[in-house]
């Protein structure tokens, strides 16, 4: 009784005006139009979104966790990139 799997779409929701879209989950659908409808039914039953993006899962390209050290560790020792690295006297005021 097994049937073919319908394409998988990742679902992103903007919860309020002014905020970014955020990943919510995924739905199966045959095209973008029905993917949007399914995402609306499934992920916005309680005012969770005012805008939906769907994108075919196989169109998302992800970094490989194996590469994490070379990709992300170089940022670990660059504390001078953060404002708190610099001592500014209080009398200067807010900066």
């Amino acid at each position: 009784m097994s049937e073919k799997n319908w394409p998988l779409y990742e679902v992103f929701l903007r919860s309020r005006a002014g905020l970014d879209h955020k990943h919510a989950g995924s739905v199966h659908a045959l095209d973008a139009e029905t993917a949007l409808e399914a995402a609306r039914d499934l992920y916005t039953r309680r005012q969770e979104g005012i805008s939906i993006w769907v994108v075919k899962s196989n169109h998302v390209h992800a970094s490989d966790p194996v590469d994490n050290p070379s990709l992300f560790e170089p940022a670990d020792d660059k504390i001078y990139r953060h404002p708190t690295f610099y001592d500014i006297p209080d009398e200067v005021g807010k900066m």
Binding site: N5, W6, P7, S57, N58, V60, D64, P65
Partner: peptide, 13 residues
């Protein structure tokens, strides 16, 4: 379809 997406596939085997 599942399996052809890099957000899900474990790359290290």
């Amino acid at each position: 379809m599942y399996g052809d997406t890099s957000i899900q596939k474990p790359m290290k085997i």
